[in-house]
Design a protein around this nucleic acid. Structure first.
Lengths: 269, 269
DNA sequence: TTGCTCCTCACGTCACGTGAGGTGGC
DNA sequence: TTGCTCCTCACGTCACGTGAGGTGGC
């Protein structure tokens, strides 16, 4: 079957089929060396149609290649996994749309109560990682255990753990992100992944968040409010945003306060 | 404010900001002619953040440009309209995933009953149009009325109306598509958009569809079955797929048969 | 002098679409 | 000879990311 006929029967374009050959995704059964003509066979039609359908889901060719190569039994699961990811994105975007609607319709943004507090000098143990938004929960749980497990060397874990967002953590940006825990002292060598440092005394602005507000863009007004406060008071921030976890967010009610967003400030000289 | 500071405060990249300037989407307040340095002002932050959020929805820059230029009151509506479109796509894709799951898990595809019938020579009045999947319902309703309204010249509209899909009609392909109606005779000049032609006698294969099957990919097995039938019987098709509407699909139950898919065949000589 | 931020090309990415210019058999 | 299908570049699209190479003020 020539490329034209194959294209028609699979509803793929000849151009796409040539690309798929180059990518090693779907190679013609036979290529005549003198003319370069591609010939496809009847039993390639099913694969080609599968490719077409996966492309309709906007699945990248790299993933499609993996799926075609996977054993029969795994293909359905691979599609499910991909689609679950797409649906997760949809959920995020839907909440962004809701937020935008409210904002563009000039509805009142929730009032934000910005406060300031002093943090004395302290030692913190930290684990840092590059990861995407969807993996934060797992990281948080794991690292938390990890810090506890590293316990023999860490004396008196005390105070709330907090996250420092050195870079954006979202669908398409992977931080880095650091989980910190104030500690009293270090008495034994720790695992490499755990770093301990002394944080100087400083002030920080903060805003409380309920569990329901713990996602983007629900926390946007809080961020905006802190930024405005800093400008307005003529202060200067000395680091990226933090999230101070003082309640187990899995067990909390939607409206219960579970964490603070905070920004460290340069001291007034 | 330099591009770097503006980029940080809006969470857009400098590169993106330069692109937005070139597109006329978001121009710096002031550009120093000697150095080419861009300077942004405080009151551009809100627009820039709006652009960022719309981009998170994967909205193309061309649409974003229109939204930024629109009056305040229309912006929310424009976002809604865009998002409604995205959700429509999601619905289609979701049903494609369900279909794929069934197929990849080796579940039985529904049995398809392929039949053949003879169509005698007949006159048909036709309206043709280029349009996308989402507009088909409106086209169908409008054109239907249009054919009726053109009535003075069309004697005895009879037999079921049918659609001919000359090209793919989907999210990203726009046909063309033709709405046809068999007529007894033409007694007066018609509007230009209505064409009348004589269709020669021919056979056609057909498959009944319920209302629930009237979407892609639910109708895929029916298409496959017709194709296999044609090959197996050694027949040759003489035109693209048609959809013969014999029931008002808006009032029908989900499991009620509402139309046939059919393919015209070359006569046996 | 080194470092920092800014600048302008220019090329890469992704999955193709769309010519341009040429070939081979009816 | 014309028309049809196939071929291989090569460039365009979209929204950027990522150097390369250079500038200007501390």
């Amino acid at each position: 079957m020539t490329i034209g006929e194959f294209a028609e029967r699979t509803r793929l374009s000849p151009k796409a089929l040539r690309l798929y050959e180059k990518m090693g995704l779907l190679e013609p059964t036979y290529v005549e060396s003198s003319s370069g003509y591609r010939y496809y066979s009847e039993d390639q039609i099913d694969s080609a149609r599968l490719v077409g359908m996966l492309r309709r889901l906007d699945m990248p060719l790299s993933i499609i290649t993996r799926i075609l190569a996977a054993p029969q039994g795994m293909q359905a699961d691979a599609v499910s996994a991909y689609w679950a990811d797409v649906e997760r994105q949809s959920v995020e975007r839907r909440s962004l749309v809701v937020y935008l609607q409210a904002k563009l319709n000039g509805e009142d943004m929730p009032e934000v109560d910005v406060r300031i507090r002093h943090i004395p000098e302290r030692k913190v143990a930290a684990i840092s990682r590059h990861l995407y938004a969807k993996d934060t929960d797992r990281f948080f749980a794991n690292s938390f255990l990890h810090l506890r497990a590293a316990g023999p060397g860490l004396e008196g874990i005390e105070g709330c753990p907090f996250l420092i967002f050195y870079g954006d953590v979202s669908e398409d940006s992977d931080g880095p992100l650091e989980l910190c825990r104030p500690v009293r002292d270090v008495t034994a060598p720790l695992q490499e992944s755990v770093q301990v440092r002394v944080e100087p005394a400083h002030d920080e602005v903060y805003v409380g968040l309920t569990k329901a507000q713990m996602n983007w863009p629900s926390m946007a007004p809080a961020m905006d409010a802190m930024e405005m406060w800093i400008r307005h008071e003529g202060r200067v921030s000395t680091g990226p945003v933090r999230q101070v976890m003082f309640e187990d967010q899995r067990r909390a009610q939607r409206d219960a306060p579970v964490c603070d967003l905070s920004v460290p400030l340069k001291s007034l000289c």
